[in-house]
Structure formats: C-alpha cells, structure tokens
Design a protein around this nucleic acid. Structure first.
Lengths: 164, 164
DNA sequence: TTGAGATTGTTCGGATACGAATAATATAAA
DNA sequence: TTTATATTATTCGTATCCGAACAATCTCAA
C-alpha cells in the first residue's frame, strides 16, 4: 500500500463527511484499487524491465503494438495503445530518435502514416518481451490461479461498457 | 475495445512472433486489461464528471485525499494519490491557482508543508463527490454484484505485492 | 469538375509525470 | 557545540498526455 491508512479507515472518514448521502463503497473500492494497481504496475515496470532500455511505458506499448501489427497505421496504434493521436505523434518522434521505428506515408491514402520497426526495434522486442512477460507473471502471482481469468474478464467488461 | 482486434487475434499474432517461447497469456491478459480499464475509466471521468469543474483526474484525487485527511502533509497526499512528490508540487500549484486549496508551513517541523482546503474546495467536493460516486457505480455495473469484492481484492493484492 | 464535408496526422498550449539535484530543516553522534 | 546523516518540498530537464485548431488529403454528391 502506498498510503498509511487502511481502506476501512478511509471509508469511515468519507462516511463522516457525507453521512447524509448514500454511497456505494464497493464501487469506490473497485475504481480506487484499479488506479492504485495500474499505477503501481506501470511504475514497477518502468523501473525494472524498461529502465535498461530507456523506454517509457507508453513507448514500450507503442513499440509492442507496432511489432505485432506492423506495418501499422498510426490510428490503429493509438487506439490499441489507448492514447490520443496527439500523444502518439510525440512518442513516435521519440522512437524514431532512438532508432527503433520509422514513419512512412501511405501510398494508397496520403493522409495516413504507416509505422514499421527498424532492425534495432525488432532486436529489442525479441529480447525485451519475454522478460516483460516474466514480470507480468510475477505481478499476477498473488491472484489465485483460478481467479485470473475472472479478473481479466471483469476488467474487460468495464472497458467495454465505457467505450462501447 | 479501443482497437479493432480481438484478444485471441492478438494472442495468435504474439504466438507467431514468439513461437519458440513459452508465454503466460493469462498474465498478459490481466495486465493488458488492467491498463485498458484504468485508462478508459480515467478518460471517461475526465470527460464527464470532472470536465465541468475543469479538474484533471490527478487534481481531483489530490483534492479528494486532502478533503478526507485535512490538514494533510504533502508526503501523505503523494503516497495516497500514488504520485511522486515532484508531481504533487505542480498539482498543488494548480489547485492554489484555482482557489481550491492552500499550502502552509508546519510549525512543528519546518520541512513539512501542510495542505488544507479553501471554502471553494469544500463546496466543490461536497457537490462533486456524490456525482463522482454515481459514475463509479455506473462503471462497475457490468461486473456481477458478487464479483465486485473479488475484483477489488485481486487488484489490492497486486498492488500490495509490488509495493510491499 | 467542383466544392462541401469528412478524415487524418501534426502543431500548439497547458497540465501532468518522474528522476535527479538542490536547499532547508531536523536529528543524531562526537 | 559541531558535524555528519537523514528527511522534506521544490526546482530542473525531459517526456508524456490531451483537446482544440490546423493543413493536407480523400470522398462523393451536384
């Protein structure tokens, strides 16, 4: 836990502040823990597996998506990486500066930009991704094996509901 | 889903790229969906409940933590909000500029900075938080009622494992 | 053919976001 | 008392991150 306060302590304080209101503490606990977990995992990955390559979390995700779907259109990448087009522009510039990926104009549609990995990008991902997955296993380890699919399903359901 | 590709399609592509490796797709699905969900929820909240107040997600969280624990030390707030001290400095400046909170030096320990809410901050949170919780309920709605506690517990376990 | 409307990537402005270095303060031992 | 060590918030540099405005391109109806 980041903070020094327990969940029940927080809930009781909130209840005091809003004693006249009916609040759904279970929903609160879900979103609250969702962000703590996402933030903790992201920082952990950036400080361990990704640190040696000098990649930010987002840079890695963009690289990964490109690696899987290449040649990939930027709009695809942005959607798959859950970032805006504006953000992707900056991250792609970073990846180009690092010599890992490159942009090229689409021949069919002059508006589109196509992204491919350079040799250094391929080499990096082939080394990095297995390590990354090992850390993913570690991260998920405290969740009982029989619970992991349910966890992924619940998270996917939340995303689908919002974005659907 | 943000992207146009299904999960199995992605997995099969990854398997092709790394057919010589043993990968844990279940762990991959958990972390992947964790970030999609967190990102989707955050953006949804920023575009709906928080948009009218002009608050970013982080600014809201900092405001909320302060509201609950006030008077609060900045190190407490940073830990509770899962952000670095450096980030908090900037966010607090924003909140002060908006007239919602204010800083003051601790009398006992000259190194510490104490944060309290201004009247406008109190008023805003009393109005905003119930609305926020309503959206939290909506977000969690697609997860079966009996599954919500398990979801929160799994997420908390992941955070604890990393930060413990 | 042309011109209105839609789509795409980039730019711009402003707000996070973090690690490292820093200055101020506190605490401890010598 | 003084000195070394530790702790705190801020500053600095750099990299996201997004919405809005923009220019380039495509589409399709008139």
């Amino acid at each position: 836990m980041t903070g020094s306060h327990t969940l029940t302590e927080t809930e009781s304080r909130v209840a005091n502040r809003l004693s006249h209101m009916t609040l759904d503490f279970e929903a609160m606990a879900v979103t609250s823990n969702l962000f703590r977990a996402a933030s903790a995992v992201r920082n952990h990955f950036e400080r361990t597996v990704l640190a040696e390559s000098g990649l930010s979390w987002t840079a890695f995700v963009v690289l990964w998506v490109t690696w899987i779907w290449e040649p990939a259109e930027t709009r695809e990448i942005a959607a798959e990486a859950s970032i805006s087009k504006a953000t992707l522009t900056g991250v792609l510039t970073t990846l180009e500066k690092m010599g890992l990926a490159k942009r090229s104009r689409s021949a069919e549609d002059g508006r589109l930009v196509i992204v491919t990995l350079l040799p250094a990008g391929h080499k990096l991902m082939e080394k990095l991704f297995p390590e990354f997955n090992k850390h993913e296993v570690e991260v998920v380890e405290p969740v009982a094996k029989g619970q992991r699919r349910a966890l992924a399903d619940s998270l996917r359901a939340i995303t689908a509901k919002i974005e659907g």
